[in-house]
Simulated scan of single mutants.
Amino acid sequence: MPEFINEEELVKRYNLEIGKVFFFENYLIIEVAEGICFDHNKAIELSKLTNVHFEGRPFGYISHRINSYSLEPTDYMKIKEVFPNLKAFAAVVYNRFQATSVKIENMFFQDGITTFEDLETARSWIKEQLI
């Protein structure tokens, strides 16, 4: 179990082809697997789980970018149709390349992705957004 996971807060953990997904009461943390291309189809797969866990309630999404993977920035233009109840989106980045990637992603996602350098700060921010 990753050290950032508090067993009492964790609702469900999935080990999927796209990576590890940790569901909490009103947010999720995803660690996309090394080398994956996270595109619209993979987001649709993930949305099936968000629909089950959040049941239409607003939720937060934390992309914990510990692995190197690619994504389709233009797919962010469709994010509201895939995740209609997404209220807050955070990315935890660990280098300048990742930070630059998020800046590019923000050109396509009108609600914005907030960048953090550590997971705990991102979790605190997500929880504040969901109050």
Rank of each mutant, 00 (worst) to 15 (best):
F4D: 07
F4E: 04
I5V: 15
I5G: 10
N6Q: 12
N6L: 12
E8T: 04
E8R: 02
L10Q: 13
V11D: 05
Y14E: 15
N15P: 10
E17V: 09
I18Q: 04
I18E: 03
G19N: 06
V21E: 10
V21I: 13
F22M: 03
F24V: 11
E25L: 13
N26M: 05
N26L: 07
Y27Q: 05
Y27A: 11
L28N: 02
E31H: 00
E31I: 06
E34V: 06
G35H: 06
G35S: 06
I36F: 05
C37D: 09
F38C: 04
H40C: 03
H40A: 05
A43F: 11
A43R: 12
K48P: 00
K48E: 06
L49T: 11
L49F: 10
T50L: 01
V52H: 02
V52Y: 02
F54V: 05
E55Y: 08
G56F: 02
F59I: 05
F59G: 04
G60V: 15
Y61S: 13
I62G: 09
I62Q: 09
S63R: 00
R65A: 07
S70W: 02
S70P: 00
P73K: 04
T74S: 09
T74L: 01
D75V: 09
D75H: 08
Y76L: 15
M77L: 12
K78L: 08
K80W: 08
K80E: 15
V82R: 04
F83H: 14
P84A: 04
P84L: 02
N85E: 13
F89K: 09
F89I: 13
V92S: 07
V92R: 01
V93N: 11
Y94I: 14
Y94G: 12
N95I: 09
R96Q: 06
Q98R: 06
V102Y: 08
I104Q: 04
I104G: 06
M107P: 00
G112F: 07
T114W: 02
T115Y: 08
F116A: 11
E117K: 14
E117A: 10
E117G: 15
D118T: 14
D118W: 13
L119R: 05
E120W: 15
E120T: 15
T121N: 14
A122M: 10
R123S: 11
S124N: 07
K127W: 02
K127G: 06
K127S: 10
Q129H: 15
